[in-house]
Every structure is written in structure tokens, then in C-alpha cells.
Design a protein around this nucleic acid. Structure first.
Length: 477
RNA sequence: CGAGGUGUGGCUAAGUUUGGUAUAGCGCUGCGUUCGGGACGCAGAGGUCGCAGGUUCAAAUCCUGUCACCUCGACCA
């Protein structure tokens, strides 16, 4: 085969137009539908099932670290939102306001939560009294609203689903520890379950969260070489505590402010799954997150015994999420359809196989075919799913590594940003002026100051003054 | 919010320049034949042309306004 035959029509190839490819996949794989509300999307069964799996796994991991779930109101009175100055200023441009209730104008308008720091603080000030009440490790699963000007499915919508964890601690050390712990949890989740390698690091002051003392982030590289901030963990210090008056009495009988953190991951991560693993036939789902892990396509399904055998195989594979596609579409149609939807493994079973006591399994990621004997079904499919999962992570890592460059001086830097999509590692002096200039000149932003530092040179890539930190730079979603 | 683009059955579009019966392919429904990479035949259903005004004997087509969506920037998970 000189050129890979395009097996799925209707999807713009990613080499031709990556943005259009993304939109096509999202729609053709039936992850979402556009709604009649501007900038808000409808999660269709497949899209929502992926989110449910993400929730299930993350929630389990949160709870292992002692986190408890709560639910907060979706409205925040203006006065409450205004309590922490940096926080309001950061969010003011994108909040939606409720000004009327029933037939009457409200005396105080309320916003639809863009995030719930203020609500959690308002609660903590009431329920925290003693060091014995700490730490508070709360999380909520909810949707938030931000009045976005332009929107894209999963990557930016006016309402999106997420989880926001909010914790209160007695000491600064403990808060910092929790901040890092959650960042590590996110990174591990992404690598182990979503097969997406992450760069862990700290945001520069310019890029940090409104009201935070420090913001940590995990950054992923998409197939087109753009970066996606995939999860964040913030250390608030005691800034919010001071603004809201969250104090506790210490063992020494002294009144102290609590130290707080917050951390979140949103449905945006589904965009990362699409853009890291997808190909020109559509979605490719990592086996550990796929709502359907195996689809069985019967060949000549009206022939004696074929459907029975298909269901028998499904029974044997009870440990996995398996579907038999017995609709009356042609096999070829089903192949294309399930590839578009990213089902990790397809099993083909027809009269010939039944005669031989075998079936054929095809991997979604590389279309490799394996002939498997009935009696080995369980073990062989388990092996295939596992191999596929780890191959996907390796492939994503290889792509990221081969798209990561280093720049020693500004000419090099500008050349790479202009011509080679990906991350650029370069030294930085710590001045916001250089970040701004780089953005102005190249549209690239600082993604993070990685925990794993390297000494690329001793001068700032932009101004040439003494460098402080190595920074990952890149164009971002 | 700036720049560009697009709105015509479920989807993709033609038709708009030059006003004159609403079109095609795919999809959908029924029946039959098929089935190892998007099968085929026959029969059928489905559209106030984004919305609101205006011009005209006549508007998908011209004019005014408006809304939505897409792409690229600025801002952000």
C-alpha cells in the first residue's frame, strides 16, 4: 500500500486542517451536539459516558486521599464574590448575572458560579473553629458558567462540567503538600488512564489563578503541536482566609488563619483525549477510559449460529465492556462507524471463523489483526487491551518528545516557534516584561516552569540577562 | 471584542450575479436480496430557504435590521 487508504470519509484529514478535523471528529463520533443556547453543548451518550468514566476514576482517587464530596449552590451573591479583590478582578469579565427572580428585581444581583472559592470560604468561616476541625478536604462535581466570547466543543464552552476541590489546612506546609499531591494525582490519572503524558510544573505569576499564591499545572501537547493546560492545582496561602475571616484556634490557643488550596479538572480533558490520540478515521479511545472496550461485528449475521457465537464471546469477555453490533448495517459500515467512535478493539466473527474455532480481533490504534481461539478469548483480549493502552502512552510520549525543542537565544526561539509546532524549552529571567514581549513577538506563552529543571544556558532567552528558571513555552489552546 | 466566512429537508451542497413551479447526493421509512472495509433493487416520507421588516404583480434571490454557527486573533479550564 503506497498510501494509507482513507477508510473513513467525511472527516477532514488533520494534515489538511486540524481545527476542522477536530470539529468533524467531535460531531461524527457523536460526542456532542450543538444546542440552541449559544456556546453551550449537549453531551451525547458517548461524550457523557467518557466523562462518567473520568469521574468514576478521579473520584475514587480523590477519596483515597481523604477527600469528601459536597454540593454547593450554583448562585453567588455579588457581595460574596467581591470579597477577594484579585479573584473578582480575574473573573468579572466572564460572569453571568441573575438580576431578576420571578417578577421582581433582586436587591442584590447574583452570579452563576464561574468557580466556587467564595462559597467554600463562606462555609469554612462558619464550620472551622479549632485545629481539630482541620483539614477540610472537600470536592464538588458540578458545572460552572463563564461568559466566553468564542467557544469550541470541550475546549471552551460557556457552561462546562468539572470538579473543584477546596481544602483548608492549619499550616502553609500542609497546604503546599496538598497542592502538589493533587497535581501528582492528576498527572498519574492522565498517564495511567488516558495515556496522555504530562509536564508538571508551576505557572509564572502572569499565568497564575486569580487570587492564588501559586498555581501548578499539568501541560499536554496536542497532535498539532499546541499545548493544552489539562489540570490545575492552586495554593491560596491564607489570602482568602483573611478576606473571608476563616480562623481557627491552634493548640497554643492562638487565633490563626487557615491555608487553602483548590484544584480542578474539567471536560476540557476530553478535548485532549481527542487531540492526542485521534487519527484521520476519528476518535481513538484509550482502553481504560473507553465506554465500550470491545465491539463484536458479526459477519453474515443471518447465517445459522453466527449471532449465537457473537453473544457467546461477549459472555466470555464479561470482564470487559463489550457490545455486539447486530444492527442490519453492512459489516463495512460497522467497521467505519466504530472506528469513528474510537472503540479500542473490534472482533469480527463469521461462518469461516466458527468452522475454525477462532475469531479475528482488530486494534483501533494500528489496525493490527490477531486471530484468536475461542477458548483463549478472555486472556488474549485482556492482553491486547493492555498492550494498546501502553502503546498509546508510548506513542504520545514519543510525539511530545520529538516535538520538544530547546532554544539558547531569541533568534533560535523565534525560528522554532514560527516553524516547528511544539514545546520550546528556554531559560527565563523571571521578568513579566519578557513574557509579554515573547507573546507579542511570537504568540507563544509560558506554559510552566517544570519541576524537572535543566540548565540550557545561563541567560534569559529574551532579554539576555541572568536566567533564573527553565520554562516550557508554546502556543496554547 | 476585532478580522474573515457561512446559514436552503436529518447531513453535505447547487440555485442568489441577471427575482418567475424548491433541486441533487447521502441519510430516513417499508419490502426483498446481501454481508471479511461505508452493499444493491423497488416503493415512499420529509423543506414557512436562520429570523423580522421592506421593495415588487412575484423574493431563497434585491434592500434594511437582527440572531446563530465556524475559522483566525485578544481573554480564559
Amino acid at each position: 500500500m503506497a498510501k494509507e487508504k482513507k477508510l473513513v470519509e467525511e472527516i477532514t484529514s488533520m494534515e489538511e486542517d486540524f481545527a476542522q478535523w477536530y470539529t468533524d471528529v467531535v460531531k461524527k463520533a457523536e460526542l456532542i451536539a450543538y444546542s440552541s443556547i449559544r456556546g453551550c453543548m449537549i453531551y451525547r451518550p458517548l461524550g457523557y459516558a467518557i466523562w462518567e468514566n473520568i469521574q468514576k476514576e478521579l473520584d475514587r482517587r480523590f477519596k483515597e486521599t481523604g477527600v469528601e464530596n459536597v454540593y454547593m449552590p450554583m448562585f453567588i451573591p455579588e457581595g460574596l464574590l467581591n470579597k477577594e479583590k484579585d479573584h473578582v478582578e480575574g473573573f468579572a469579565p466572564e460572569v453571568a448575572w441573575v438580576t431578576e427572580g420571578g417578577l421582581n428585581k433582586l436587591t442584590e444581583r447574583m452570579c452563576v458560579r464561574p468557580t466556587s472559592e467564595t462559597l467554600f470560604c463562606d462555609l469554612y468561616k462558619d464550620i472551622v473553629e479549632s485545629h481539630r476541625d482541620l483539614p477540610k478536604l472537600y470536592n464538588q462535581w458540578c458545572s460552572v458558567v463563564r461568559w466566553e466570547k468564542t467557544t469550541r466543543p470541550f475546549l471552551r464552552s460557556m457552561e462546562f462540567l468539572w470538579q473543584e476541590g477546596h481544602t483548608a489546612h492549619a499550616t502553609a506546609e500542609e497546604a503546599e503538600e496538598r497542592t502538589i499531591q493533587m497535581l501528582n494525582l492528576y498527572a498519574a490519572f492522565c498517564e495511567e488512564i488516558l495515556a496522555i503524558p504530562m509536564i508538571k510544573g508551576k505557572k509564572t505569576d502572569k499565568e497564575k489563578f486569580a487570587g492564588a499564591e501559586s498555581t501548578y499545572t499539568i501541560e499536554a501537547l496536542m497532535h498539532d503541536g499546541k499545548a493544552l493546560q489539562s489540570g490545575t492545582s492552586h495554593n491560596f496561602g491564607n489570602g482568602f482566609a483573611q478576606a473571608f475571616g476563616i480562623q481557627y484556634t491552634s493548640k497554643e490557643n492562638k487565633l490563626e488563619y487557615v491555608h487553602q488550596t483548590s484544584w480542578g479538572m474539567s471536560t476540557r480533558i476530553i478535548g485532549a483525549i481527542i487531540m492526542v490520540h485521534g487519527d484521520n478515521s476519528g476518535l481513538v479511545l484509550p482502553p481504560r477510559i473507553a465506554p465500550t472496550q470491545v465491539v463484536i461485528v458479526p459477519i453474515r449475521q443471518n447465517s445459522e449460529g453466527v449471532l449465537d457465537k457473537a453473544n457467546e464471546i461477549k459472555e466470555k469477555l464479561g470482564a470487559f465492556s463489550v457490545k455486539v453490533d447486530d444492527t442490519d448495517k453492512s459489516p463495512g459500515w460497522k467497521f467505519a462507524e466504530h472506528e469513528m467512535k474510537g472503540v479500542p478493539i473490534r472482533i469480527e466473527i463469521g461462518p469461516k471463523d466458527i468452522e475454525n474455532g477462532t475469531f479475528v480481533a482488530v486494534r483501533r490504534d494500528n489496525r493490527e489483526k490477531t486471530t484468536i481461539r475461542f477458548e483463549d478469548a478472555d486472556a488474549e483480549i485482556a492482553k491486547l487491551l493492555e498492550t494498546m493502552q501502553s502503546d498509546m502512552l508510548e506513542r504520545a510520549k514519543a510525539h511530545r518528545d520529538s516535538s520538544t525543542y530547546t532554544a539558547k537565544n531569541y533568534d533560535e526561539f523565534k525560528d522554532i516557534i514560527a516553524n516547528k509546532p511544539g514545546f520550546v524549552k528556554a531559560m527565563w529571567c523571571g521578568e513579566e516584561a519578557c513574557e509579554l514581549k515573547i507573546k507579542e513577538d511570537t504568540t507563544a506563552t509560558s506554559r510552566c516552569m517544570p519541576f524537572e529543571q535543566e540548565e540550557i544556558s545561563d541567560t534569559c532567552v529574551c532579554c539576555g540577562k541572568k536566567a533564573k528558571t527553565m520554562v516550557y513555552w508554546g502556543k496554547a489552546y
